[in-house]
């Protein structure tokens, strides 16, 4: 029997498309912030509020409202946390790849800071996502880990980006660090499509991506809801990490003669050799 919310076509459509409308709203908030950051500082609080609000109600939808899966029963509910986190990790690391390419064409501290922010947030989301995958694997595959192409490419991704962040920490010269990490970011980015398509390219124990037309509508609604919640959270985390990275960069590249006397930190941005 279909749930009351999905009884009517209008209800079905509202439930299925409301998360997409919310995603458009989240992206609109973010993009309008970029056009005039000083006048829209409240945007980050709004985005964080949306993410927290969605995460507060998400457990009800994911753990109660959504029906059990035919073969996996209730264990499949890990999917609502596992998949969005890994997709957001891949998106963040794809932005890192884009920033790495952009930096080599046009050197910019902002691009370098965004690369650092996306690598760290991507690594964090990926690490949690993989751990959740391991928690899901134990009851369904009867093992915490197996050397499957999808899992190997995910593990390689984690090792590479951990190395990337280690490289950034050990190189003191900001310009050398930015250039070397941009090169490493490009090399590391090769793994992202391999990770995404591995389940299609090789026969694997890991299932392929599900098609919304083959699963219960409620599962689609909850998964979309979770995607939007994680998207809002990821945007906030990347931006806050970007601001921290940019502040560090400004402090590192500030010219000593440009600083006011008796102060160790610069007060203004853009005092370095790069924009």
């Amino acid at each position: 029997m279909r749930h009351w919310l999905l009884t009517y076509d209008l209800g079905t459509r509202l439930a299925l498309y409301a998360p997409l409308v919310m995603l458009v709203f989240v992206l609109w908030l973010f993009l309008t912030h970029l056009t005039d950051p000083p006048s829209r500082k409240w945007t980050w609080k709004a985005l964080l509020g949306i993410a927290v609000g969605m995460f507060l109600v998400q457990p009800y939808f994911a753990l109660s409202w959504s029906p059990p899966e035919k073969y996996m029963g209730d264990v499949y509910r890990i999917l609502y946390m596992h998949v969005p986190q890994l997709i957001m990790a891949m998106l963040a690391l794809t932005i890192n790849f884009g920033c790495s390419v952009a930096y080599l064409f046009k050197k910019s501290w902002a691009t370098d800071s965004l690369a650092e922010a996306t690598a760290e947030v991507g690594l964090y989301l990926g690490a949690v996502g993989i751990t959740l995958g391991s928690l899901w694997a134990k009851p369904t595959w009867n093992t915490w880990w197996t050397w499957d192409p999808r899992l190997i490419s995910a593990a390689v991704m984690m090792v590479i980006y951990a190395g990337y962040l280690t490289l950034r920490r050990f190189v003191e010269d900001p310009e050398k660090r930015a250039t070397w990490s941009a090169v490493m970011g490009i090399i590391a980015g090769v793994d992202i499509p391999v990770l995404y398509f591995s389940v299609k390219w090789w026969r694997s124990i890991h299932q392929v991506q599900s098609n919304p037309s083959t699963v219960d509508d409620r599962m689609v609604v909850v998964l979309r809801w979770s995607y939007v919640a994680f998207a809002a959270l990821t945007i906030v985390l990347i931006y806050q990490r970007f601001l921290a990275a940019q502040a560090t960069r400004n402090r590192e590249v500030a010219l000593p003669e440009a600083l006011p006397p008796d102060e160790g930190l610069p007060k203004a941005a853009g005092q370095g050799a790069l924009p």
Partner: peptide, 27 residues
């Protein structure tokens, strides 16, 4: 069919929330 397994589901959700809290705090 897989029967039960709620402990894995709760572990996954608690880990995610804990991760969010700790990473947010570190930021």
């Amino acid at each position: 069919h897989v029967v039960g397994g709620w402990e894995y589901v709760w572990a996954a959700y608690i880990l995610t929330w804990a991760g969010m809290g700790l990473y947010g705090l570190s930021l």
